[in-house]
């Protein structure tokens, strides 16, 4: 059963085809990575899949059900969550509160109960808080509960977004460059966190530039270049594909290619 299928997705911005006839199919329980040079359309693909952009063409199916054109909040209720390359932290809230927001789709009290602080509200708040703490622990952020989120370091903020997404108990999690700006030790942490997430039965779609991480962790890799699919396969297949090396060499410089494919 495919968790996510996209067929013939396309979107243009003022004449530029940011995504051009891209199709993907992601099986349950996989780590599915999307790589490609900067500007090749990885984030745009995430934005299409998560309902932030409306595709000009193509369709998207989540667990077999067509969801093209649904709003992000509707997709969230169907078990899709994501993190952002350009961090979207609730910086006025504490670390714990950020993750509590992730529980929103599991909270049931209505506006009247909220206003009157019905007994169900504090009870639910406690459950939300406990679940949020558990999610923080899974992302390796235990013990930072009451810090203002804005005061965390960049790497921690990346993990805060993961915790927040986990709190919503997704079936499918999209991670947009979770290891960007991380040192090797932090990248190791991300590696471990992702493995644990997959072990819990969540399917992960990963966009990442750190090729060591990608090659280590992925079941399949989809390569984009200039908005088009270059190839898709297992890490070994992709690693040895001349077209991939060419794309990276051509656009991205030799250094990264060498680091990526050694």
């Amino acid at each position: 059963m495919m968790v996510l299928e996209a067929n013939g997705l396309s979107i243009s911005f003022g004449g530029v085809r940011a995504i051009d006839d891209v199709s993907i199919a992601i099986a349950s329980g996989q780590v599915f990575s999307i790589i490609g040079p900067n500007g090749s359309g990885k984030t745009t693909l995430f934005n299409l899949v998560s309902g932030i952009y409306l595709p000009n063409d193509g369709n998207i199916r989540l667990a077999g059900e067509t969801v093209t054109g649904l709003a992000p909040e509707q997709l969230a209720r169907r078990g899709l969550s994501r993190t952002f390359q350009n961090l979207q932290i609730f910086s006025r809230m504490t670390v714990l509160e950020n993750v509590m927001v992730g529980r929103h789709r599991h909270e049931r009290t209505g506006i009247m109960a909220d206003l009157l602080h019905w007994p169900s509200v504090p009870r639910q708040n406690r459950a939300t808080r406990d679940a949020a703490r558990a999610a923080l622990a899974r992302a390796g952020l235990a013990g930072e509960d009451d810090r203002p989120a804005g005061s965390l370091a960049y790497g921690a903020l990346k993990r805060l977004e993961i915790a927040r997404a986990l709190a919503s108990e997704p079936k499918l999690l999209l991670l947009d460059e979770p290891a960007a700006g991380c040192n090797p030790v932090e990248t190791q942490d991300i590696d471990r966190i992702i493995r644990a997430i997959v072990k819990d039965g969540i399917t992960v779609v990963l966009v990442e530039h750190d090729m060591r991480l990608v090659m280590n962790i992925s079941d399949r890799i989809h390569v984009l270049a200039s908005g088009r699919t270059l190839t898709e396969g297992t890490p070994d297949q992709v690693r040895s594909d001349p077209a991939v090396i060419q794309a990276y060499l051509g656009v991205h410089g030799s250094q990264e290619a060498v680091r990526a494919f050694d």
Binding site: S50, G51, I52, A71, P72, E73, A76, R77, S81, R82, F84, Q88, I89, F90, S91, R92, M93, E97, M100, V101, G102, H104, R105, E107, T109, I111, A113, D114, L115, H117, V121, Q124, N125, T128, R164, A165, S168
Partner: peptide, 23 residues
């Protein structure tokens, strides 16, 4: 101190993140 309040607070900082979390 309720889900609605947290949602409102979240909207202030990032509407996109709020929506992605189901708000």
């Amino acid at each position: 101190d309720s889900p609605t309040g947290r949602a409102l607070h979240a909207i202030h900082d990032s509407e996109i993140a709020a929506r992605v979390l189901g708000i």
